[in-house]
Amino acid sequence: HHGSGALAALHADGPHAGLPVTRSDARVLIFNDWEERKRSEPWLRLDMSDKAIFRRYPHLR
C-alpha cells in the first residue's frame, strides 16, 4: 500500500489554513481522498498530475 498513512504538511493558519504546503503534500491528500472514494466509486481514476493539483489547490501554482 503505497501512500496510506502518509501525512501531508498543511498550512496551520492564514489564508491557506488546512491546505497542503507543497505539491508532494497535495499528492498525499489527493491519493488518500482517491483511496477513500474508490470504495464507493471503483471506476474513479487517480490523477496526481500537476494540472490536477493546480485545479484542486490553485494556491500551489
Rank of each mutant, 00 (worst) to 15 (best):
H1P: 11
H1G: 12
H2K: 13
H2N: 09
H2D: 08
G3I: 14
S4V: 14
S4I: 14
G5D: 08
G5W: 12
G5T: 14
G5A: 13
G5S: 09
A6G: 10
A6C: 15
A6W: 13
L7A: 10
L7Y: 10
L7W: 07
A8S: 05
A8N: 04
L10N: 15
L10E: 03
H11K: 04
A12V: 12
A12D: 07
D13R: 06
D13W: 10
D13M: 08
D13G: 08
G14F: 03
G14I: 05
G14V: 15
G14H: 04
G14S: 04
P15S: 05
P15M: 06
P15Y: 05
H16A: 05
H16Q: 10
A17S: 08
A17K: 14
A17M: 12
A17G: 04
G18W: 04
G18P: 03
G18Y: 04
L19K: 06
L19C: 08
P20I: 15
V21W: 04
V21S: 09
V21C: 15
R23C: 14
S24N: 12
D25Y: 06
D25L: 02
D25Q: 05
D25H: 04
R27P: 00
V28P: 00
V28W: 09
L29A: 05
L29H: 03
I30A: 01
I30E: 00
I30P: 01
F31K: 10
F31I: 06
F31C: 08
F31T: 05
F31V: 04
N32D: 09
N32E: 10
N32W: 13
D33K: 05
D33P: 01
D33H: 06
D33V: 05
D33M: 07
W34P: 00
W34S: 01
E35R: 14
E35N: 13
E36Y: 13
E36C: 12
E36W: 08
R37V: 02
R37P: 00
K38Y: 15
K38D: 02
K38V: 13
K38F: 08
K38I: 13
R39I: 12
S40Y: 15
S40H: 10
E41S: 06
P42D: 03
P42G: 05
P42Q: 05
P42R: 09
W43S: 08
W43N: 13
W43H: 10
L44E: 09
R45K: 14
R45H: 09
R45W: 06
L46P: 03
L46N: 01
D47A: 02
D47Q: 03
M48A: 04
S49R: 04
S49L: 02
S49H: 02
S49P: 00
D50G: 02
D50K: 06
K51I: 12
A52Y: 11
A52Q: 06
A52V: 07
I53T: 01
I53Y: 02
F54N: 09
F54D: 13
F54Q: 04
R55Q: 13
R55W: 07
R55K: 11
Y57N: 01
Y57P: 14
Y57V: 00
P58E: 02
P58K: 02
P58F: 01
P58I: 02
H59Q: 01
H59D: 00
H59E: 00
H59P: 00
L60A: 00
R61W: 10
R61Y: 10
R61G: 07
